Amino acid sequence: MGLFGLLFGWPLAPVHAVVRLGELIQEQVERELRDPAAVRRRLEAIEEARRAGEISEEEEARAVEEVLRLMTTGPRRG
């Protein structure tokens, strides 16, 4: 890269740092979505909400489906 690249690349360093930070956050979120203990906690919370009458059977089914979809495919990009 040399001196020329360093001089003209330096102003973009904060942009590169923010992009890398976003990538690291995304990787961490994806790891947590697939963590078996976290998935189990989310499924248990959904089941408890259903037992407490906070959500309907349909809402429970949709929530379980969403947890499983997130575990297998990751978050939606949008």
Results as ranks from 00 to 15, higher is better:
residue 24 L to W: 14
residue 25 I to A: 14
residue 59 E to L: 07
residue 24 L to S: 12
residue 39 V to P: 04
residue 68 L to G: 03
residue 61 A to I: 02
residue 32 E to I: 07
residue 38 A to P: 00
residue 38 A to K: 09
residue 29 V to W: 08
residue 66 E to H: 13
residue 35 D to V: 00
residue 27 E to T: 07
residue 30 E to S: 09
residue 44 E to Y: 09
residue 63 A to L: 13
residue 54 E to K: 07
residue 31 R to V: 06
residue 61 A to R: 15
residue 39 V to I: 15
residue 24 L to E: 15
residue 28 Q to L: 13
residue 41 R to Y: 06
residue 37 A to G: 04
residue 35 D to K: 04
residue 37 A to Q: 13
residue 41 R to E: 15
residue 61 A to G: 07
residue 69 R to N: 08
residue 40 R to V: 08
residue 43 L to D: 02
residue 56 S to R: 06
residue 60 E to D: 00
residue 55 I to N: 08
residue 42 R to G: 05
residue 21 L to S: 08
residue 40 R to M: 09
residue 69 R to K: 06
residue 57 E to D: 13
residue 44 E to A: 14
residue 49 A to Q: 14
residue 23 E to C: 02
residue 58 E to H: 12
residue 25 I to T: 10
residue 23 E to Q: 14
residue 57 E to A: 09
residue 61 A to N: 10
residue 42 R to K: 09
residue 39 V to C: 06
residue 29 V to D: 10
residue 60 E to Q: 11
residue 21 L to N: 03
residue 56 S to K: 06
residue 54 E to M: 05
residue 28 Q to N: 09
residue 23 E to S: 12
residue 35 D to E: 14
residue 28 Q to E: 11
residue 66 E to V: 01
residue 34 R to H: 08
residue 59 E to F: 00
residue 45 A to E: 15
residue 56 S to M: 05
residue 21 L to W: 08
residue 42 R to A: 14
residue 28 Q to F: 03
residue 60 E to G: 02
residue 21 L to I: 04
residue 70 L to P: 01
residue 45 A to C: 01
residue 63 A to S: 14
residue 23 E to M: 08
residue 65 E to K: 05
residue 25 I to R: 15
residue 40 R to P: 00
residue 51 R to Q: 15
residue 31 R to T: 08
residue 45 A to I: 05
residue 69 R to M: 04
residue 67 V to H: 05
residue 62 R to A: 11
residue 28 Q to S: 12
residue 32 E to V: 07
residue 57 E to H: 02
residue 61 A to V: 08
residue 57 E to K: 03
residue 67 V to K: 03
residue 42 R to C: 07
residue 28 Q to M: 05
residue 46 I to A: 13
residue 65 E to Y: 03
residue 23 E to L: 12
residue 46 I to V: 15
residue 30 E to A: 11
residue 53 G to I: 06
residue 50 R to V: 00
residue 56 S to I: 03
residue 42 R to N: 12
residue 41 R to M: 12
residue 49 A to V: 02
residue 54 E to W: 06
residue 40 R to F: 05
residue 65 E to S: 09
residue 42 R to W: 05
residue 51 R to G: 08
residue 35 D to G: 01
residue 21 L to K: 10
residue 32 E to W: 11
residue 51 R to K: 15
residue 50 R to Y: 15
residue 47 E to G: 15
residue 66 E to W: 10
residue 56 S to W: 02
residue 23 E to F: 09
residue 59 E to S: 03
residue 69 R to Y: 12
residue 29 V to Y: 09
residue 32 E to D: 11
residue 61 A to D: 10
residue 63 A to D: 03
residue 44 E to S: 10
residue 43 L to P: 02
residue 67 V to C: 01
residue 58 E to W: 03
residue 26 Q to F: 09
residue 35 D to W: 06
residue 49 A to S: 11
residue 65 E to G: 09
residue 69 R to L: 12
residue 64 V to Y: 02
residue 35 D to R: 08
residue 25 I to H: 10
residue 62 R to W: 04
residue 52 A to L: 15
residue 67 V to Y: 02
residue 54 E to P: 00
residue 64 V to A: 06
residue 51 R to I: 04
residue 67 V to D: 04
residue 66 E to G: 01
residue 63 A to H: 05
residue 52 A to P: 00
residue 47 E to R: 12
residue 48 E to V: 07
residue 28 Q to A: 15
residue 38 A to W: 02
residue 46 I to L: 13
residue 29 V to A: 14
